[in-house]
Design a protein around this nucleic acid. Sequence first.
DNA 1: GTAACCGAAAGGTCGGATGTTTAGTATCAC
DNA 2: GTGATACTAAACATCCGACCTTTCGGTTAC
Lengths: 232, 232
Amino acid sequence: MAVTDEAIRKIKDMILSGDLTPGQRLPPEKELSERLGLSRNSLREAVKALEVIKVLDVRRGDGTYVTSLEPELLLEALSFVVDLHQDHSIIEIFEVRRVLEPYAAGCAATTISDSDIIRLRNMLDSVDASTSVEDLVTHDLEFHRLINRAGGNDYMANLLESLSSSTVRARIWRGVTQEGAVARTLEEHRAIVSAMESRDSEMTRSWASIHVGGIETWIRRAVAGSNEKGDD
Amino acid sequence: MAVTDEAIRKIKDMILSGDLTPGQRLPPEKELSERLGLSRNSLREAVKALEVIKVLDVRRGDGTYVTSLEPELLLEALSFVVDLHQDHSIIEIFEVRRVLEPYAAGCAATTISDSDIIRLRNMLDSVDASTSVEDLVTHDLEFHRLINRAGGNDYMANLLESLSSSTVRARIWRGVTQEGAVARTLEEHRAIVSAMESRDSEMTRSWASIHVGGIETWIRRAVAGSNEKGDD
DNA sequence: GTAACCGAAAGGTCGGATGTTTAGTATCAC
DNA sequence: GTGATACTAAACATCCGACCTTTCGGTTAC
């Protein structure tokens, strides 16, 4: 295509070459547009595109900056995309989770701090079968996030977080609640924490696998069911 | 923030609610901008942003369409982001690959077709230690792509493809070539294919693990080395 | 020393004009 | 009738210039 896409590429190249470093401020739109040889409007389209994928940070009245480019930030954009995936992809996404989460949990079993284990315990104590769906989603998100981060691979943790967007999580917990399976699911959470407390990588991995795998099976059934009803 | 971001959200919502379906054409920019209550310029920024993450497809002289929203398309945008990651993240990214690829390869061992195995064999025969770096990168990309796709999880395959962007792959193979380790690396490729030929999931998985793990180790050394030289 | 003020700079938004490309239609040659 | 060609309307691409709002930092008043 043309000028705007070229501008995107040029800005990316400036970052890759080191002309622009994380945190650095870009020239004003007017100046940059002149330098890159396009109008301010067109440049703004390029900047906007780089902003939504968290490469640039535009501060009104101040200037435009290169973000930290941390995986956390860049992968955040991925959740926007995951939201758009349909039933079919949801299953595949879950299979990815099923492979990665047990691995991360297993790593975490040997590296997690005692204080983090206490935090996990407190989380578990704050929910039960009578907790609202919204709170269960929040709990679930924080629970898995803490474990994933404790695994030591930030990229993997962020990736997993993006893969299980809140809208998907909400849908799942709504289903889990309807099936009255909340207690069992939370029991699995407890088993994971217990295994980590024992610093048992293998058991942690297995419980995490059972936990995510169980939800995956539930989703497969749910999707198959909605397809039968023609709700594809 | 403001009008542009709101427009992005509204368009996303239209897709999520089913008002806009994959392949459908959006109203002309002028009309849509009026309907959403913002200027055409601002709307274009929103459209551009959704275009770079492959949600919209803008065809000049024709119109703007919702893409297929296939994972393949949406994850493609991820490689843009992966390109921007630095040494530190590269290692973490590779650890993700090391977990996922053996799994995918193990699945593929039981599902891959005979003709695909033949294609893999042909690929292997087309390269050796004297092949150029560029061709090795292409070979490597196609080799792993075929196996990952044969694993049956398209989302995972696309994710893996995005995670190992071509620039990263190029960097790796340049290093592998310099170390004279091309023959050994290609030998690992052969071992993976042989295991798949025997329909041996376990062996396939193990060889894939050894293969990716070996490269990961090499990268860790390379990054550590460049850090020592202050080339961070 | 502090707080309020002010102005320059930067991004946010807009409207309109003009260029380019595309799809579709109408027309013409065979 | 069929195929190729020419035309036209629609839609995106790009630009210009204007004006608004926000932010930062220096200045002034107390």
